[in-house]
Design a protein around this nucleic acid. Structure first.
Lengths: 141, 141
DNA sequence: ATTTGCATAGGAAACTATCACCTATACAAT
DNA sequence: ATTGTATAGGTGATAGTTTCCTATGCAAAT
């Protein structure tokens, strides 16, 4: 029987290992579309907002990796014409960031690939999937 | 009841989110020692090898993030005098990579911090810890 | 002798992390 | 109306790291 420290240490190690394993596949799948996982994440959030534009700080809150620099991510996506940026009318400190048709198109294509990729997770049962999601959420407190 | 795709999608999202959350804390904890998580990983492997030197390819196999560039990691760690690199006598294609006393010292210091950090995972029970480790391993197939 | 495997070198591009600084706005208190 | 403070976002510079790529040297295997 392991001691407590080693037990939780192995949670950390398996978390890092499994994420790394999945992330590499994710990057590989998105690469042909020239999308980084962080950019894909932004596209999903923008599309999920049903064409109502959102602010950068909203994106910062919603995004998976809180460490990412929204301004510079949006810069790159604007160049690729996947998003637009305009001054918010009601609060002029904010930007209205919105997805374009081109952005929606690339999001749909990428999503198709990701829906395929997700099948690599099918080595666990649906019950296990429910359990692991729940515990992962609980970990973050 | 969610459909299957959404269920496994949420596993992916929670995996990425929780790892990102933990990784940021890990980086913050290691920063004062000027160690990256990847370098800490190398130090642990070298120390775990009980002072028997190992090859770069062995490290590549053992390391958590398979995408990392062992040569460059070792370059940096050699500069900091945490490891030594010498030609392997028995197989002269290989390098013998070994940890130094200085490397052991910084490893021990960093490990102390990480043993503290691990407590952020205590929001789940020991049973949940066992379960989540097991499922994370199973995911990778 | 040729092929395969191990390890490394080095360039280029991309990403990260910080920092300091700046602009403009909102909003509440004076 | 003025001032102070917090908020929202952006800019630019720097340094370091990572990632990808190609190429090379050398040893080992066959």
């Amino acid at each position: 029987m392991k001691n407590k420290k080693d037990l939780y240490q192995s949670v950390a190690v398996e978390l890092l290992t499994t994420q790394s394993w999945y992330m590499h596949q994710l990057k590989a799948v998105l690469k042909p579309y020239d999308i980084s996982p962080a950019q894909y994440n932004i596209l999903r959030i923008l599309n999920g907002a049903k064409n109502r534009p959102v602010s950068a700080s909203y994106l910062k809150d919603q995004v998976i990796d809180k460490g990412s620099n929204i301004t510079r991510l949006i810069d790159k996506m604007e160049i690729k014409k996947w998003v637009t940026r305009s001054l918010c009318e009601t609060n002029r400190r904010q930007m209205d960031i919105d997805i374009t048709d081109k952005g929606i198109k690339v999001l749909l294509e990428a999503t198709k690939e990701i829906n395929e990729l997700i099948k690599v997770l099918y080595s666990i049962t649906e019950d296990e999937a429910k359990i692991v999601s729940k515990i992962l959420i609980k970990i973050r407190g």
